[in-house]
């Protein structure tokens, strides 16, 4: 199982998470998002970029409340909540946003 774009072949597991997270690129994110029927707007990139920088620093995906707090800081309190995140990623920020961001499936995510 693999994502194919611009002549690249990047393997993923049965749920779509990358087998080798170091192979992520913004172009690949667009490709993964397409498979999720998600259009990568600026707001969604904001979430994806935050996830990547958090993972880069701590080697773990953030707790949801950390994500909402960060969004509240950057985009105002109206957007720093669960509802907003689910608006952006209907199948859940953990499931969809982490996948698009090229992170491993979050620990404890069912």
């Amino acid at each position: 199982m693999a994502y194919q774009y611009n002549g690249h072949t990047i393997e993923h597991d049965e749920e779509g998470y990358l087998t080798d997270i170091s192979l992520w690129s913004p172009e690949l994110a667009l490709e993964i998002a397409k498979g999720e029927n998600i259009e990568m707007t600026e707001e969604r990139w904001e979430v994806v970029n935050f996830l990547r920088s958090y993972y880069d620093e701590y080697q773990v995906a953030p707790a949801i409340r950390v994500l909402t707090k960060a969004l509240a800081k950057s985009m105002g309190p109206a957007k720093g909540n669960n509802d907003y995140l689910y608006e952006l990623f209907p199948y859940g920020p953990a499931k969809q946003a982490c996948k698009i961001a090229g992170l491993p499936k979050p620990t404890g995510c069912v």
């Binding site: 958090y54 620093e57 701590y58 080697q59 773990v60 953030p62 707790a63 409340r65 950390v66």
Partner: peptide
């Protein structure tokens, strides 16, 4: 091996 030492610094975010 994965270096998980930085993850201890994220524990506060998890309460």
């Amino acid at each position: 091996m994965k270096c998980f030492a930085p993850t201890y610094r994220a524990l506060g975010d998890f309460g």
